[in-house]
Design a protein around this nucleic acid. Structure first.
Length: 502
RNA sequence: GCUCCGUUCGUCUAGUGGUUAGGACGCAAGGUUUUCAUCCUUGUAGCAGGGGUUCGAUUCCCCUACGGAGUACCA
């Protein structure tokens, strides 16, 4: 690779950033870091009517949460700004004029209504209207109108757009880093609008101009852009600019059924489609708020469309950076699997430093109205983290460490509280009372030898005991539980249980 | 409709002109266990179809089917 790699993520601030967009940003980031290059965040806000308040902020916050660091952008600054297209308005006008001058573009005065009528008529005739080499001669533009008429219209400030003059029948050969050679005949393309009548460029013009001016070396974007690649390539050619490399990423598909992943799927099937909660208008749930670790989220997303060619599945961001390569990105759309997302979170629940989880866990415990020392929180987390996918699940696994049973599970009582249970539990209480070093392993040793001496059934004793301590047949190693709650509390729970259950 | 892209277990995917087509999720069955989980082991299931090319195609080519995207004064 010659020169410095410069890539960009160029979202449109029209709402919350979809996880497909996050993945595109992630791959750009990985590619940039891998090649010690630069990642630029460019806001593509040329459509003023679709602007959504809060979207730009959301995009930046989402990337930050994921650990995707931006080198140049509206917030970070840089030598190629401004990084918001709406602030680059004059630039595009200049380049549109250049194309007009060189004959690669022309002014078109047809109104949206006139074109609408044309489209409708073609549709009824079973065809599709295209503004191109076949039709442009019969339409209202600077190619067909006399020069003085054109200058009259512009002088009167009659609105017009600037269209690209797509050559009639030329094979355009393109190279995609993921797909290889792509060939399209320009005859199938139309004269795309480059500059709108409101004085703003369309995506196509702005994108090409900015990528050139910002010296972007690799354009990594979603597959939905592949159909407009020929236009972009032609624009580079029209300007006489060097072509960057292109990579079009496969789409993210919905878990079941047809089509690409949408917000609807998430709502319907109960999983988020966005990284963060979206608080405006029609709200949307987010991975962050649902308790996903950003590491797990990023790991899961990275493997959706890319793989290292090994069996390794767990990657830190640094590992992703060193192992990522565009060549190993797949070509086909990837169905999003919410189950696998949970699995990834489960993995991170096991490998994350215990203090990190304990800190969050302690907060939750305090919200429940109890206080806990950091070392105790860590101890409990270590004890039960294997049983949960999310931090939020930790409370259900540990609530009985803080609260004596409020009730005794009916089915469990029926199954495990037998005729001789009260006698056994009274004996057990006596055994426990006699233990001075009330720690798990010691208690276990004493209790088990007592069970052996009396020839009781371990299952019968332990389950009845668990019922008295927890109220239900669940939870970690019972001796660990009573070790934690202490001798006094243990004895109290036995007494209370005996009172209730008889 | 037209243009472009794609197609290996249900899902994410590895892979090769000759392999017992590998891994992971899920699911199932065992095992561990005082419970519930976890965990471990095993199993389950796939090269879309049809033509070529070839001694031999899952792999290369073509066609079909299916899926996806695009087809706006949206990005």
């Amino acid at each position: 690779m010659t020169g410095t790699v410069r890539v960009r993520f160029a979202p449109s601030p029209t709402g919350p950033l979809h996880i497909g967009g996050v993945r595109t940003a992630l791959y750009n980031y990985l590619f940039a870091r891998k090649h010690k290059g630069t990642l630029i965040l460019r806001i593509e806000d040329t459509d003023r009517s679709r602007l959504v308040e809060g979207a730009e902020q959301y995009i930046m916050e989402a990337l930050e949460w994921c650990g995707i660091l931006i080198d140049e952008g509206v917030r970070e600054g840089g030598n190629y700004g401004p990084y918001r297209q709406s602030e680059r308005k004059e630039i595009y006008g200049k380049y549109a004029a250049e194309l007009l001058e060189s004959g690669w573009a022309y002014m078109a005065f047809d109104t949206p209504e006139e074109l609408g009528i044309l489209r409708k008529a073609h549709e009824e005739g079973g065809s599709v209207f295209m503004y191109n080499a076949q039709t442009r001669d019969r339409l209202k533009n600077s190619l067909t109108l006399p020069a003085d008429e054109v200058s009259r219209l512009t002088a009167e400030e009659i609105p017009y757009v600037i269209r690209f003059k797509m050559p009639a029948g030329e094979d355009i050969e393109m190279q995609d880093m993921i797909r290889g050679k792509v060939l399209v005949n320009s005859g199938t393309l139309d004269d795309k609008i480059l500059y709108k009548s409101d004085g703003m460029p369309t995506y196509h013009l702005a994108n090409v101009v900015d990528d050139h001016l910002m010296e972007i070396t690799h354009i990594i974007r979603g597959e939905e852009w592949l159909p407009s690649l020929p236009l972009h390539v032609m624009l580079y050619r029209a300007f006489g600019w060097d072509l960057p490399s292109f990579a079009h990423l496969p789409l993210l598909l919905k878990p079941t059924g047809k089509g690409k992943l949408s917000k609807r799927d998430g709502d319907k099937m109960g999983f988020p489609v966005f990284p963060l909660f979206w608080p405006y208008g029609e709200t949307a749930r987010g991975y962050r708020e649902e308790g996903y670790f950003p590491e797990a989220f990023v790991n899961m997303l990275a493997l959706l469309g890319w793989n290292p060619g090994t069996d390794k599945e767990l990657f830190s961001m640094d590992e992703l950076i060193s192992e990522f390569s565009i060549e190993r990105v797949g070509r086909s759309g990837a169905r999003f699997d919410p189950e696998k997302a949970r699995w990834f979170n489960h993995q991170y629940m096991q490998i994350k430093p215990v203090e990190d989880i304990a800190r969050e866990y302690a907060k939750m415990v305090e919200e429940k109205g109890y206080s806990i020392k950091p070392e105790d929180a860590a101890r409990l987390v270590e004890m039960v983290r294997g049983r949960v996918d999310f931090i939020s699940g930790l409370w259900y696994q540990t609530n009985f460490f803080f609260e004596a049973p409020q009730f005794y599970d009916e089915a469990a009582v029926k199954k495990r509280w037998k005729e001789d249970s009260p006698v056994q539990m009274k004996e057990l209480k006596a055994v426990l009372e006699g233990i001075s070093s009330f720690i798990s392993s010691d208690i276990e040793e004493r209790v088990k030898s007592w069970i052996r001496e009396r020839d009781y059934g371990t299952g019968a004793v332990m389950n009845a005991f668990r019922l008295l301590i927890v109220g239900e047949l669940r939870g970690p190693h019972l001796f660990d539980i009573i070790d934690f709650i202490g001798k006094e509390e243990t004895l109290e729970r036995i007494d209370r249980g005996l009172e209730v259950l008889g």
